[in-house]
Amino acid sequence: MKLILLNGPPGSGKSTLARRYADDHPPALALDVDRVRAMIGGWRTEPGRAGLLARELTLAAARTHLTAGHDVVVPQLLARPGFAERLEELAAETDASFHEIVLLPDLAETRRRFAGRGESEVETAHPLTEEDLATAYDRVAEYASTRPGAAILDGETAYQDFVAALT
């Protein structure tokens, strides 16, 4: 069984790939932290607190699903240490293989994808500006460079590359 972390800036395709993988590998779980956060009351007024709670709930749900012998995919923008390491520890504790994939299409493509997708209430309490998107992109890229086991994909053939990176 696999625990897969899909990191990347907004608009890189994390949630789309997670959902496709789960659909193609039932009963894999696409466990979106942002969707979990949106289920917590008051998340818009305290997004940081709700985000921390959502990560704890995500770890608990992932543990349950992995213990049952099933794959888990966690799409989440990560730009600092902490959560990726906890996921990696969880994989070791449950005898799952850990796979860290970073989706980094070039910034222009990321902007195009982000602009072309619909609004989602679960993503953020505050709308992202072009500058926010560029900052998030740079932070993810910088953090990914500190994760030697992470596979970085440019998104040209994202799903095929994603599945190939898991072998």
Score class of each variant (00 low, 15 high):
residue 1 M to T: 15
residue 4 I to W: 05
residue 5 L to R: 08
residue 5 L to Y: 03
residue 6 L to F: 02
residue 6 L to P: 02
residue 6 L to A: 13
residue 9 P to W: 00
residue 15 S to W: 01
residue 18 A to K: 02
residue 19 R to C: 00
residue 19 R to K: 13
residue 22 A to K: 10
residue 26 P to L: 09
residue 30 A to G: 04
residue 30 A to M: 01
residue 32 D to V: 12
residue 33 V to E: 08
residue 37 R to K: 06
residue 37 R to V: 01
residue 39 M to Q: 08
residue 42 G to E: 06
residue 42 G to R: 09
residue 43 W to F: 10
residue 43 W to L: 08
residue 43 W to S: 07
residue 46 E to A: 12
residue 46 E to L: 11
residue 47 P to E: 09
residue 48 G to C: 03
residue 49 R to W: 08
residue 49 R to P: 02
residue 49 R to M: 00
residue 55 R to A: 14
residue 61 A to V: 14
residue 63 R to G: 13
residue 63 R to H: 15
residue 65 H to N: 07
residue 66 L to Q: 14
residue 72 V to W: 03
residue 72 V to N: 04
residue 74 V to A: 08
residue 82 G to P: 07
residue 85 E to S: 14
residue 86 R to T: 15
residue 90 L to N: 11
residue 90 L to Q: 11
residue 95 D to H: 15
residue 95 D to R: 15
residue 95 D to F: 11
residue 96 A to Y: 09
residue 98 F to M: 11
residue 100 E to P: 00
residue 101 I to V: 15
residue 103 L to C: 09
residue 103 L to N: 07
residue 107 L to A: 09
residue 111 R to G: 09
residue 112 R to H: 14
residue 113 R to Q: 08
residue 118 G to C: 04
residue 119 E to Q: 13
residue 124 T to G: 12
residue 124 T to S: 15
residue 124 T to F: 09
residue 125 A to V: 05
residue 129 T to M: 04
residue 129 T to R: 08
residue 131 E to Q: 14
residue 132 D to S: 08
residue 132 D to P: 02
residue 133 L to C: 03
residue 135 T to A: 15
residue 135 T to P: 02
residue 136 A to P: 00
residue 137 Y to F: 15
residue 138 D to P: 01
residue 138 D to M: 07
residue 140 V to K: 05
residue 141 A to M: 01
residue 147 R to P: 03
residue 154 D to Y: 07
residue 155 G to D: 00
residue 156 E to V: 14
residue 157 T to D: 14
residue 158 A to F: 00
residue 164 A to H: 13
residue 164 A to E: 10
